[in-house]
Design a binder for these strands. Sequence first.
DNA 1: TCGGGAAAGTAAGGATTGCTAACTTTGACA
DNA 2: TGTCAAAGTTAGCAATCCTTACTTTCCCGA
Lengths: 205, 205
Amino acid sequence: MTDKPAVRTAYHHGDLRAQLIEAVRDLVERHGPDGFSVAEAARRAGVSSAAPYKHFKDRPEILRGVVSEAMDRLRAGMEAGAAAYPHGSIEAVAAVGRAYVSFARAEPGVFRLVFGLTEGHADAPDLQAKGQGCFGVVLHATAACLHLQPDDREVQSRAYMLWSFVHGHSFLTIDQKSTVASARIDDWTYLMTVSRAILGQPVQP
Amino acid sequence: MTDKPAVRTAYHHGDLRAQLIEAVRDLVERHGPDGFSVAEAARRAGVSSAAPYKHFKDRPEILRGVVSEAMDRLRAGMEAGAAAYPHGSIEAVAAVGRAYVSFARAEPGVFRLVFGLTEGHADAPDLQAKGQGCFGVVLHATAACLHLQPDDREVQSRAYMLWSFVHGHSFLTIDQKSTVASARIDDWTYLMTVSRAILGQPVQP
DNA sequence: TCGGGAAAGTAAGGATTGCTAACTTTGACA
DNA sequence: TGTCAAAGTTAGCAATCCTTACTTTCCCGA
């Protein structure tokens, strides 16, 4: 009766939506994006298997909820990374990348979900907006570093290059494909090298 | 009685395994990695829903079959790309990347499957070997370009950088996240620029 | 030539899942 | 205090994965 937040109160336990998202997040993390069932999530939350449908239209909508929450955290991490170094420094750019990679390492299942979901969910304006928000962090750090505006064409190109680099590295890391290249560099050195390479020379020869 | 390859003969239709893989490949391409059912694949092949289990242990093994076949084609494409330009040229390196991106564009569902499968399939030595084979193509093109041996530490680092770049770009492209960066460069220019940037300066400052 | 065994198919069924329909409980507010 | 919507419940349908027990066909050696 006293523990509203975690276990359950009675009947209306008041926090089901958030608790379901957390349960699903954990399941996705453990068994992969398609390795979760709404039934199991309901079981974990201590409710019947029909209860989730009072909060979500269907299975995909639950996943979208997880993704939305994850993107918030991803963005927060990236912003924190940028803030930890002087505004306009290359270190700030590299730190944004490091936050990205850290997120992928910490929650590979969720990370894969976030970027694999685009499949049948093209119709999700809020997610698309959050994606743009994340890219915006890269964009601003890049712009500051180059002393240009974020809408500058060259800033956009270079920011995209940085992003695809970091994105690819993240995926290869969590897929453990990066161990294929026996010479593993640590993240920070790697990210600083790449950032310098991309921000230090013209994009068009 | 005369059409062994495509439709079906009678009872033993002789080609079920390959036909199932093709059916699943198509389904994955249409409805995403988790949007296929072995029942549907069996239906398409014109056999009972239990027949697939004579050829594959379970659902994941069928997916692994699809991935294996896809990796063969991916590698073939990369090799063809390299072969289309002078041995040791930067163009050859860029062409390997272009083949990679082309594959992702042409078969986004399968591409995502190939690199999302690492989830519960860590136990798949043949797939891991094929992955190394693909990386080997990048490695050799890089080595030739730098006039070094493929097992050289620097070659490995740079090849990995190139790979993560191309890999990330592929994912962002098929996720249509690349349109976020309004300034879209065409693939070839992009790949040549990146290849030059990575192969043209020291990896350690 | 033919007879037996393995390969490759079928049908039937149990367990689990996604989702709906119809019901009940609860809390909040006029 | 009475009413109503929100948030739960149980029951159940259709589909899926996979197993078991069966049947059909092909191939190969005596």
